[in-house]
């Protein structure tokens, strides 16, 4: 993000219409959050609240003329992932999201927002469509995780997720990711590789569900609350680790209390982000996206050790020129 800011910032002077992240009402620093934060476990509960606005609730309020597109052209249409073409303030975009239900019946149809491999393959079809017709891509992440059942294994859940991540890392259009509720593991990341990753204030993003973590490390799913604290999956932690670039403020009491206000906040954030991303050349978008995900990792490397310092990475060489010229 900072690199993006520097690039966009260098043009802001000449164009004078740049959007600062802060101007869009986003939270970029944990100190901007209200002091009486909910505990991680409360955040997990809020993120899972059945009344929380889900992908279609948001799409209906943020975009105009959403036309849903169905099917992966190979096996079936997975109701846990929805997507299509819509307009954002009159400009066409591709939208893909994981869809949870807002009632038990709907949740059964939607498989509780847990996609099958064909869901990810549908998503990939839409990503390619976005690239082919130069439409920006907006993804809405809200899943407990990819479906872990036997049919999903049979149809290559892991391969579908891996391919989807791969496609997103090289997709030659601006990509904005919004985590609406639960960002559950690889199943979320398959929709989560973007130039900018935003999250709603009470969204979570985790390597495994708290229950799953507890089941493995404490050998009991009932330790989920402890696991939720240990895993640092809530908003402030996501800002701190850089997993989310900024948080979108929710109405007091949570997104489920006011879908319209939540959608309005998401809309202004999306418009601002797509506006600034659309001014970055695609080649730079791709190398910045690479760098964004390349930089995750905390480790210790004793300098002067046997390991030779890596030769200047290719992405730094690419980045250097535009920046040194003071503009793109």
């Amino acid at each position: 993000m900072s690199m993006l800011d520097r690039i966009v910032g260098s043009r802001r002077g000449t164009e004078g219409n740049g959007h600062l992240v802060v101007e869009a009402g986003l939270i970029t620093d944990a100190t901007q959050l209200a002091s009486g934060r909910p505990t991680p476990w409360q955040t997990v509960q809020t993120a899972r609240n059945i009344a929380r606005p889900h992908a279609l609730d948001i799409i209906g309020r943020v975009f105009e003329q959403f036309q849903e597109l169905h099917g992966d052209r190979s096996f079936r249409d997975d109701p846990a992932i929805i997507g299509g073409i819509a307009q954002l303030e009159g400009r066409p975009v591709i939208v893909v999201g994981q869809q949870k239900g807002s009632s038990t019946e709907e949740n059964i149809v939607r498989n509780f927002g847990m996609p099958y491999p064909e869901g990810y393959r549908k998503a990939m079809r839409l990503y390619r469509l976005a690239q082919k017709f130069h439409l920006p891509l907006v993804t809405l992440v809200d899943t407990p995780g990819a479906y872990p059942g036997p049919e999903a294994e049979e149809r290559g859940q892991a391969e579908a997720i891996a391919s989807s991540i791969q496609l997103m890392t090289r997709l030659a259009v601006p990509v904005v990711v919004v985590v609406l509720g639960e960002g559950g593991s690889g199943g979320a990341l398959a929709l989560g590789v973007g130039d900018v990753v935003l999250a709603l204030e009470n969204a979570t993003y985790s390597v495994i569900s708290p229950e799953g973590c507890a089941a493995i490390l404490w050998r009991s799913a009932s330790e989920a609350e402890r696991a939720a604290v240990a895993m640092k999956l809530a908003g402030p932690d996501l800002l701190e680790t850089g997993v989310a670039d900024a948080l979108i403020r929710e109405p007091a009491g949570g997104a489920h209390t006011d879908h319209d206000a939540t959608a309005a906040a998401i809309k202004s954030a999306l418009v601002a982000q797509l506006d600034r991303l659309s001014r970055v050349p695609v080649a730079d978008l791709l190398s910045l996206r690479y760098e964004r995900f390349r930089s995750f990792g905390m480790f210790v490397e004793p300098d002067g050790g046997a390991a030779p310092a890596p030769a200047q990475p290719w992405w730094r060489r690419i980045l250097k020129n535009p920046l040194e010229k003071g503009g793109l």
Binding site: A162, S185, G192, S206, I216, V243
Partner: peptide
Amino acid sequence: GARMQEGTIALMQLAKTVAAVAR
């Protein structure tokens, strides 16, 4: 799989390694 003790940072290693082999 991913190392749970590193939380979401470990999850991001999926994207990091995939981006590298995608090139």
